[in-house]
Amino acid sequence: MTGFGSFALRRLVGAVVTLFAISVIIYVVFYATPGNVAQITCGPRCSPAQVHQVAQQLRLDDPLWSRYWHFLEGIVVGQDYSTGTSVAHCSAPCLGLSYQTGQQVTQIILTKLPVSLSLVAGAMVIWLVLGVGTGVLSAWRRGRPTERALTAVTLAGLSTPVFVIGLVLMIVVCGQLQLLPFPQYVALTDDPEQWAWNLLLPWLSLALVEAAVFTRLTRASMLETLAEDHIRTFRAYGVGERSIVGRHALRGALAPVIALNANDVGSAVGGAVLTETLFGLPGIGQELVHAVSVVDLPVVVGMVLVIGFCVVIANAVADVLYAVADRRVVLV
């Protein structure tokens, strides 16, 4: 598999370049942002002297290139920093310290990322099974009552905001029926069963809206494939509808589904803010929104890089899946 090796290498180099570009852009944007970062970080009651000290400590007065260089240096060799009384070391790859809490950004990522990944991975399984399943069903039963009902439900799903679904789920399942306790994040490594039970509602609320998108896409894509000539060939040879729909048409209809899924998984890692907030899940999205609001540059850079990395990986996986699904595709 030399082809696969060179493909992986290319993608890896591509990812590094992309992430590098992202970090430059964020640094420039933050540098150009108006407002006194030191004052915000120190708090409203700080004296000018204290603000000045914070600015110095955070190197806010240094020129842009010098701060960026310092950032790169941290990634490659790590950096030492003062905790007030002693000197601590943040080992490479060090993404710096939070302006707000002084915590290492890598540590923050390590605590937040599992939460976001748990949320997205579970939700993805649900939206794929539900979305592709109903999509296939409504293409198969086109024009019949089943399809009309499915269309109505999915359109309703499409037009309902995530937080409405989430709230309703929580009120009904946890409040009225008391089937589940109000969700509280439990790490997978601590207790897999509790992890799943607690994430069930977040998964559902994130997946239901997404599933509607996949239903529509799968349906349209299936209808297109079902109209193709090779489907007619198998019909003319008496091959059953089940095999035609499930074997021949579905395989042909998968390409756009794979593409959209890569996109959605990548962006949901950092973009499921509403779901995270609603269910009190301490994930990447929530952290990012908070960091932006307090101009916590190192945290913002860290979170965005994580999100960027997830998007790149998700797309690379999608390309591999394309090539598996369709032998005509050559990985480059």
Binding site: E228, D229, R232, T233, A236, G252, D326, R328
Partner: peptide, 14 residues
């Protein structure tokens, strides 16, 4: 049994 016109599209590419 039917042999179709366009051999390019009459077989499943996958």
């Amino acid at each position: 049994a039917m042999v179709f016109q366009d051999p390019l599209s009459a077989l499943d590419p996958y």
